[in-house]
Amino acid sequence: MSKLSTAILRAVPGAFIANSGIGKIGMPAEYSAGVQQAAASGIPAAAKLPADKFGTYLGYAETAIGASLLAPFVSSKLAGAGLAAFSGGLLTMYFRNPENTEADGIRPSQEGLSLSKDVFMLAIGLALMAQGKNK
């Protein structure tokens, strides 16, 4: 893979995720609790974290993942692994909630469309991991 294509694969989701994370840091407790409830539908252990701080914790984690994608000194393999893990977590919310899919359990319903798109981030993460050495 060329350096330009690697930069594109890293910069686009990196900037998006970092921006999303920064927006969650310090979020109001009520909103944080709602985000936690949604996250716990896919990752039940998320319910064990303090509800009023969950959004801030998630914000720091998202910012770190986005920054790792944007930082050229972080290997593509490591940055891709972080992105794959993050998007995999988001996809668990998609697959564990029956309202997100059509009757076949795969195709997205209208409610699940926004989460189903996270499969693209998973594909990008896997592509970066497949590159092997940092490019």
Rank of each mutant, 00 (worst) to 15 (best):
E102L: 08
G55C: 10
A81M: 15
G88Y: 07
A29F: 15
Q131C: 06
A15I: 05
G66M: 09
A81Y: 14
P44H: 01
L122W: 08
T63G: 03
E30P: 00
L58A: 15
A39L: 09
E62Q: 02
G132R: 03
F86I: 01
F95E: 04
G59Y: 11
A51L: 08
A130C: 06
L83R: 02
V12P: 14
P50Y: 05
A33D: 13
T56M: 09
K117I: 09
G34W: 13
L78P: 09
K133I: 09
G21H: 08
M1W: 09
Q110C: 00
A123C: 07
S32C: 13
A79T: 11
S68E: 07
L4G: 01
G89H: 13
T56P: 15
F95C: 00
V119A: 00
S87C: 03
G59M: 09
G26Q: 11
P72K: 04
I106K: 06
G80M: 14
Q131N: 11
N19C: 03
V119G: 02
L115F: 11
M27A: 13
L78M: 14
I8P: 09
M27T: 13
G26R: 12
L69I: 00
G42C: 03
K53D: 15
G23Q: 14
M27Y: 11
L83T: 05
L58K: 06
T92P: 11
P13N: 00
A71E: 10
L90D: 02
G66W: 07
L91W: 01
G26F: 14
A39Y: 11
A11W: 12
L91V: 01
S75W: 11
G55T: 04
A85R: 10
Y57S: 11
I65F: 08
G105W: 05
G23V: 07
